[in-house]
């Protein structure tokens, strides 16, 4: 959303005090919704029984306080205010969604229990099981990074070798075409038997899941490098090493990153399935375990943590991409 900034008139120092009413209203919207949520939660009668600890109710004053601090900072820092004004409708929307969720569960009982707990119950699960969730997150991250890193470690060289040497391509591409499309999760029964521990088996599965798209996109990137780059480099005195490391690889990086993102996606999927089925730790295991006890508030809590973990990892990769492919700035649109 575009926010019109006040046209500065008079002394520059006065500029920050002239905030248009509309901007101020948008800026205050989250606070207003937070108040409505608090009131709705406190004063409406419950349709469901709520036996958990009331962490959410206790948290309201902190949320309001936090927003007031943010609001205060925004009054004095123009850049911060602009960012916040831009995000404000979105934050308000999120709070609105929580109000609606609370209404249809706790307050009106429209959704069945135990599958659809109220926001307060999920918050209670997040807080009371924080330690287990944290350990599970730690294990999942360990599995994700080990597996993904191994997939990368094997995927990049395989792709580069296939793109550069036709003999290697001759032997590897049929294998890749035949085995690659098989989802890594299909290997679970075999992997669990072959490898000594379920963790090693899962690392293998995640690595395999990441390896395939990374290899394919690296290979495709290397083989699609504009041939005139090689010609130019050769007239400049380049040897084969230079052609591979200083021309082919940098030129194929945009394609490699597509593979890295695809690989990360399959790594997530494989990780969760592996943990649901075999591994005795991690968020996937936690979800399966909580479901076994019909503790759906915990299931939802784990899903929230998973979403944070996966989107965080993805944005981390985006950051790396933006740094490495800085030369594409203004060309790429994703």
């Amino acid at each position: 959303m575009a926010v019109t900034q006040p046209v500065s008139r008079g002394v520059p120092g006065e500029e920050r005090h002239r905030i248009p009413i509309k901007t101020l209203l948008i800026y205050l919207l989250p606070l207003l919704l937070l108040g409505i949520f608090w009131a709705e939660y406190t004063f409406l009668p419950n349709a469901q029984t709520f036996t958990k600890k009331k962490y959410l109710a206790a948290a309201f004053p902190y949320f309001v306080g936090l927003y007031l601090v943010v609001f205060g900072v925004g009054l004095f820092k123009k850049n911060f205010r602009q960012k916040l004004t831009y995000r404000s409708p979105l934050i308000s929307g999120a709070i609105g969604f929580l109000i609606l969720w609370d209404l249809v569960t706790l307050k009106m009982g429209l959704l069945p229990l135990p599958q659809f707990p109220s926001p307060g119950a999920v918050v209670a699960a997040l807080v009371s099981d924080a330690e287990v969730l944290f350990v599970s997150l730690y294990h999942s991250l360990g599995l994700l990074f080990t597996g993904y890193f191994l997939g990368l470690l094997f995927g990049l060289p395989t792709g580069i070798l296939m793109g550069w040497f036709s003999t290697i391509n001759y032997w590897l591409s049929p294998i890749l075409r035949f085995i690659g499309p098989l989802p890594a999760t299909a290997w679970i029964p075999v992997a669990m038997v072959i490898f000594p521990t379920s963790f090693v088996a899962s690392v293998f599965l995640v690595a395999l899941a990441a390896w395939f798209p990374i290899t394919i996109m690296t290979w495709s990137g290397i083989s699609n490098v504009n041939k005139s780059y090689y010609e130019v480099a050769r007239t400049l005195g380049a040897n084969v090493r230079y052609l591979i490391f200083k021309v082919a690889i940098p030129a194929s990086l945009p394609s490699v990153f597509v593979g890295l993102f695809m690989g990360l996606g399959s790594a997530f999927a494989t990780l969760v399935v592996a943990e649901l089925l075999g591994v005795k730790s991690g968020l996937g295991w936690y979800v399966a375990w909580a479901q076994g006890w019909a503790e759906y508030a915990k299931v939802w809590a784990a899903l929230v943590i998973m979403a944070v973990m996966f989107s965080g990892t993805t944005s981390l990769l985006f950051r790396v991409r933006d740094r490495v492919l800085v030369w594409q700035k203004g060309i790429i649109k994703w």
Binding site: Y229, E231, R234, T235, L236, V247, P250, A251, L325, W327
Partner: peptide, 21 residues
């Protein structure tokens, strides 16, 4: 025999390496 830096070449398309400044 083959390309050599002593025979420099400029192509119709500048063909600058886009990943380099």
């Amino acid at each position: 025999r083959g390309p050599h830096f002593l025979r420099g070449m400029v192509f119709q398309d500048p063909t600058l390496f886009p990943w380099k400044t």
